[in-house]
């Protein structure tokens, strides 16, 4: 018989079992609670708004007089204009900045300062970006209260998000692969373009989805840079007056006549669907790239 403590009774009860079970239940509630809330909210909006949506609602200009006619065509097109320009500006600049910081820039104290500054910029309230856009684009660059001024403001707003998520994606590419390419006599750019970027693209696209989703829902900065609350026409160029879906929804909800709330609900459904559509496209793109990665 060997000395020492008695053998462990493996059919016994180990310590902390009840605590662990309790913790798992807390986690379950933490998942279910927000889901129920979301379904309840969306369900309410859809129940109220879905019946209002028809081709006319999508393709007509809004009506101030009659809640049962008119639609959201100018706001829908305004949002699309804003999103396309915002993406076209913020993605190349943001990904470029991330590439420089991760692949080219040396790790210096200045680099750390830049990193902290970008992280902080991502947390700045959107109304502040609106003020910046008003000063910089609307007044100083004299773009006026136009689509391009609004889109550039939104681009500034999402830029830190794009930069941070792109850097994160670039960091997941192993250094051993960069060394392999450099060891073959490839330049930094050749390494980045053909080895690093193909592997980072799915992650970069995920960040782009987040950024675009944020931009499409923003209202506050648009109010400041002069999106109009009521307009009968879709934008016809970069220098056109515009409104956006969230602006139109806000305008309807603040209308004293309650029947306009139905329009607001319908507008929310359209906004959610647009968002859903954009995200699906981005996710499809991401999966395509991922498949090529083996």
């Amino acid at each position: 018989m060997k000395p020492g403590p008695p053998p462990i009774d493996i059919s016994g009860r180990r310590e902390g079992v009840w605590f662990e079970r309790g913790f798992v239940w807390v986690c379950r509630v933490a998942i279910v609670l927000p889901l129920v809330t979301l379904v309840w909210l969306l369900g309410g909006v859809i129940a109220r708004g879905l019946g209002r949506i028809d081709l006319g609602f999508l393709l007509d200009a809004p009506s101030q007089l009659d809640a049962t006619t008119g639609g959201i065509w100018p706001a829908l097109m305004g949002s699309l204009w804003l999103i396309v320009i915002t993406a076209a500006v913020s993605l190349p600049v943001g990904v470029g900045a991330a590439l420089y910081l991760e692949e080219y820039g040396k790790r210096t104290r200045l680099g750390t300062v830049v990193e902290i500054a970008i992280a902080n910029l991502a947390g700045v309230p959107s109304i502040i970006y609106g003020m910046l856009g008003l000063g910089l684009f609307v007044r100083w660059m004299a773009l006026g209260e136009t689509v391009i001024a609004g889109a550039l403001t939104l681009a500034l707003l999402v830029l830190p998000v794009v930069i941070m998520s792109s850097r994160e994606a670039l960091r997941t590419v192993k250094d051993s692969l960069r060394e392999a390419a450099l060891g073959l006599g490839a330049t930094r750019w050749q390494t980045t373009r053909h080895v690093v970027l193909p592997m980072a693209i799915p992650g970069i696209l995920t960040g782009a989805i987040l950024a675009i989703s944020r931009a499409i829902g923003e209202t506050a900065p648009l109010v400041v840079v002069g999106a109009v609350a009521f307009i009968l026409y879709a934008p016809d160029g970069l220098d056109a007056e515009y409104t956006a879906l969230p602006m139109q929804i806000f305008q309807w909800t603040s209308n004293p006549r309650r029947e306009f709330l139905t329009n607001a609900a319908a507008g929310i459904v359209v906004l959610m669907f647009t968002l859903f559509l954009l995200n699906s496209i981005a996710i499809l793109l991401r999966n395509r790239f991922q498949k090529r990665m083996y």
Partner: peptide
Amino acid sequence: LRRRVGMVFQKPNPFPS
């Protein structure tokens, strides 16, 4: 220089893409 002096690394690192 690295085009004349090549290198094989400790861990195999083929390009996954």
